[in-house]
């Protein structure tokens, strides 16, 4: 007969000892095990779906912000460049007036 070992905590072992009969019944109830695994699998998949959906929503929101910023940064740059040119000229003239 083959042997498989599993380690648990002392508290868990005490619980297992206490419920030995129920556990033996569960070993025989393969349908119950299959139902449980199926339900767990479903829950795990649902959680994964939800996590991905949430991550995608966040990512879309970030991406939208970036696209908006792309437009704003371009407009602001143009504004800054215009103002820099204008002030460079104006300040030069003002310095001349002050010097003269």
């Amino acid at each position: 007969m083959g042997k498989v070992e599993i380690e648990v905590t002392t508290e868990e072992l005490a619980r297992i000892r206490e419920h030995k009969r129920e556990i033996e019944e569960r070993f025989r109830d393969i349908e119950g095990l299959e139902r449980t695994l199926k339900i767990l699998k479903y829950r795990i998949l649902k959680e994964r779906e939800e996590r991905l959906r949430k991550k995608l929503e966040e990512m879309k929101a970030h991406y939208k912000e970036l696209l908006e910023f792309e437009v704003k940064a371009k407009e602001d740059r143009e504004f800054f460049m215009r103002l820099r040119k204008e002030l460079s000229e104006e300040n030069r003239k003002l310095r001349e007036r002050l010097g003269g």
């Binding site: 498989v4 380690e7 868990e12 072992l13």
Partner: peptide
């Protein structure tokens, strides 16, 4: 199949 359940760090088993 023998399923041996051991308590970690202890000789106790089921």
């Amino acid at each position: 199949m023998k399923v041996v359940v051991r308590a970690r760090g202890s000789w106790r088993k089921v």
